[in-house]
């Protein structure tokens, strides 16, 4: 500790000098809107009128009964499930193939697979929109590949998969980098000793590498779940929620409820539900990772 300030007024001065700006901005940008948001969920404000009334839990009941909300929620769960599984699998395979200098141009390949992460979801969505609606359709029609000969974006079921494909493409390079960081922390001697003892590649992967990679998986699964539930940009730019609102994920649903349908109270209740969900998942995740660390 380096506390030279004894009197309260000196402490206050030091605090304000060092942490004052951050504290003020943090409270006004995060905490105040967060608390005001909770208050909003108990009102029927439309965002324009000066007066509004308290509606108690009626917004939450509306959310609970809103079939569009639940179908959007279930779609998001489905989306999160597939992206988390595929992104982490692909990211790990890429990382495993790109460590240990077995491949010519290892760094070049790592750099290349990371590129989609540099570009925002909006731009990526627009790029893929063109690929799905023009390039792939052209290929499908010319080579007579049935499932490619019409735009996937026009079909509710296929449009969902375009979201998964683009998200997998977007994030697997990022997770690959995190896995590479984890893999390069595994002591070489451990792998060598196992090889001398006669363990083949598959055995080494299963009995040594994967167990030691659990901390990395906790980080990547945590990140992919969180990003999955909050995805908006790609959803907006790629499918725009269509066709016929069939690919409207939860963030977009909240946005439309509040800013387009002007039902701020209901929209905020849905947003608050999203917060509870994401927070619960994060806390569970942290709890399990701490537990695993103790055991290991």
């Amino acid at each position: 500790m380096l506390a030279t300030e004894k009197r309260f007024i000196d402490k206050l001065k030091t605090y304000l000098l060092f942490a004052g700006p951050t504290t003020f901005v943090f409270l006004t940008v995060i905490i105040l809107p967060f608390l005001f948001g909770i208050y909003l969920t108990f009102t029927n404000w439309d965002g324009i009128s000066k007066t509004y009334t308290f509606v108690r839990l009626s917004n939450y009941i509306t959310v609970f009964k809103d079939r569009m909300f639940w179908s959007s929620f279930m779609l998001t769960v489905k989306y999160v499930f597939y992206t988390v599984v595929i992104v982490n699998t692909l990211g790990f395979i890429l990382a495993y193939a790109l460590t240990g200098n077995n491949v010519i141009g290892q760094n070049f390949l790592r750099t290349g697979f990371f590129i989609p992460n540099l570009i925002g979801g909006i731009i990526l969505g627009l790029v893929w929109r063109f690929i799905f609606s023009n390039v792939l359709v052209f290929i499908g029609r010319n080579l007579n590949i049935g499932f490619l000969s019409y735009s996937w974006l026009a079909n509710p079921d296929k449009a969902f998969w375009t979201l998964v494909i683009v998200s997998v493409w977007q994030y697997s390079g990022y997770m690959m980098i995190i896995f590479i960081a984890g893999l390069s922390n595994i002591p070489r001697e451990l792998i060598e000793a196992a090889t001398i003892d006669g363990a083949n590649g598959f055995h080494r992967l299963r009995s040594i590498v994967l167990p030691l990679m659990v901390p990395s998986f906790i980080v990547t699964v945590f990140l992919t779940i969180q990003r999955g539930f909050m995805v908006y940009d790609v959803n907006l730019a790629l499918t725009g929620g269509g066709p016929f609102k069939s690919t409207e994920l939860i963030s977009m649903h909240v946005y439309e409820k509040a800013f387009l349908a002007q039902q701020y109270g209901v929209g905020q209740s849905q947003a608050f539900f999203l917060f509870l969900l994401v927070a619960a998942i994060s806390i569970t995740q942290v709890y399990f990772s701490k537990k695993l660390e103790v055991e290991a």
């Binding site: 809107p33 967060f34 909003l40 947003a271 917060f275 994401v278």
Partner: peptide
């Protein structure tokens, strides 16, 4: 206390704040 609040606030997704933020 402030440090704890700031770390805990990392759990709040942007969507949970955006509506009141725009309002305020």
């Amino acid at each position: 206390v402030m440090f704890f609040v700031m770390v805990a606030a990392m759990l709040i997704p942007f969507q949970a704040i955006m509506i009141p933020l725009v309002q305020i």
